[in-house]
Design a protein around this nucleic acid. Structure first.
Lengths: 139, 139
DNA sequence: GTATCTGCAAAACATTTGCAATTCT
DNA sequence: AGAATTGCAAATGTTTTGCAGATAC
């Protein structure tokens, strides 16, 4: 049976992206921790494992992944970009207390928005997000 | 009959905010041009009228307005914050060609999202936006 | 051996902060 | 005069760029 590191490596190859050590670890990290990390979160988490890692590499790599369609950038706060390895449409909920971003899947979301936007608009992407208090942070 | 400048001035007073010349012009600009401007768009548009205007004042003023609930910041691109003087829930559509952000009102939006998020989450705000090509930019 | 990839250092940008000058009441 | 507001200049923080060394094919 293949390890998930091997799977990540093959996923990259299928996108014609060379599976360098850094790239594989970055993608693996974002896929397994489903925490929608920022650049800094990725950097500080991987530093123990890859002491030579630089932020420039993370910037380069995430740009590569986003352009390839492997990841999507999530824009909830204007001062932090988060990244999600799940590119299917779903809702992001950010807790105003703990700061965590969690996924909410609503079956009928798929075309709710696009089907309601007036004709004449050519919709490429739709994004829904909410802010509030998550179940763990209720008193 | 009152000019819209006078109306803006009174709106500010109703929020206990002193209607200084700069504040009135900034709010008036965002309200009348419904272009969801960035800080820079506001700055360069008002510079002719207020040559001494500084960006710091715009930063200060917009923070004041957002905290007071007079405006909402719109986060579509991570590298630019736009501001909207309409704080009722509605959809923003950003055209990938001309870059304009337009409003789309869908009557049933009001509670579509909040009513579908699993119970346990306490939803304070919901935001929907889409990206694509606007009617004017179709070939 | 040639392409690609990584990571340092510097550059470019956007936003915030401290403070002095100005304006309003 | 006293309090609030403005705007300059400096500080901060984040992202991008240029490039030299390392790595992979």
């Amino acid at each position: 049976m293949k390890t998930s590191i091997q799977k990540v490596s093959e996923q990259l190859k299928s996108y014609q992206i060379r599976p360098s050590f850094q790239r594989v670890r970055i993608l693996h990290y974002v896929q397994t921790e489903k925490n929608h990390p920022t650049i800094d979160m990725i950097y500080s988490s991987l530093l123990a494992e890859i002491p030579s890692l630089s932020k420039t590499t993370i910037y380069n790599t995430l740009k590569l992944f986003v352009d390839a369609g492997i990841m999507q950038p999530i824009t909830i706060e204007n001062h932090e970009i988060r990244y999600d390895a799940d590119t299917t449409p779903h809702i992001h909920f950010k807790c105003i207390d703990c700061g965590e971003v969690t996924d909410v899947f609503i079956p009928e979301q798929q075309d709710w928005l696009s089907s309601r936007i007036p004709s004449g608009y050519d919709v490429h992407e739709q994004h829904l997000y909410a802010r509030g208090r998550c179940p763990e942070c209720q008193l």
